Simulated scan of single mutants.
Amino acid sequence: MSVWEVARKNIPRGCRKQYIPCLNEESKQIYDLYIAAYNVDPFSEETIQLGEDLTTLLADDRSERWKELITSVDMTHNSKKAWATIKRLNSEKNVQTRVAAVTPNQVANQLLQNGKPANKEKGHKKRLKGEME
């Protein structure tokens, strides 16, 4: 039982099931009010208004967070972060990686075949070089 409690406290926020991005103290209070109102009557005017207020507040916070991210990206100092941001903006789907035509076993086999020759007599390199041409 204590393992679960420690795990719950130490799991990063993005991995939690109940995680809501940009949920600050003000929006947390509205969220709690919304949950309580929803449990009483999900279709009342108060519940609908609380839901709209919560959605608007979260959207504004996300928009501010996004603007902050865009303005903080600097191509001159950290281009890796800038390109990662641009890649997130891209609407194309990820390109599927190509499968290599040569397997690692084939590479290892060729390396063994091309290994050092056992015969190290004088002029052997010249003879091998002549055979290669």
Rank of each mutant, 00 (worst) to 15 (best):
A84V: 05
E64V: 04
S91V: 05
A118D: 11
L33W: 03
V102T: 15
T55M: 06
V3K: 09
A118Q: 09
E46F: 08
A7M: 06
A118C: 07
E92M: 08
A118S: 12
Q113Y: 11
T103D: 10
M132C: 09
D41H: 09
I35F: 10
C22H: 10
N90T: 07
S79M: 08
E45K: 13
L50P: 03
Y38V: 00
E133Q: 12
N114E: 06
N78T: 12
K17Q: 04
T56G: 02
I48M: 00
A101D: 04
T97V: 13
T76S: 02
A84G: 06
V102D: 14
C15R: 01
I86H: 05
R62E: 09
I70L: 14
P117R: 04
D32L: 15
H77A: 14
L57N: 08
V95H: 08
L128Q: 12
P42N: 03
W66I: 11
V73H: 12
I30C: 02
R127I: 06
N94M: 03
A36Y: 10
W83F: 15
K93N: 11
D74I: 07
Q18L: 11
N119G: 13
L23G: 03
P42Q: 03
I48G: 00
E121L: 15
S2L: 15
Q18E: 13
E131W: 09
E45G: 07
A59H: 07
R88E: 00
V6M: 06
E68R: 10
V107R: 11
P12W: 06
G115F: 05
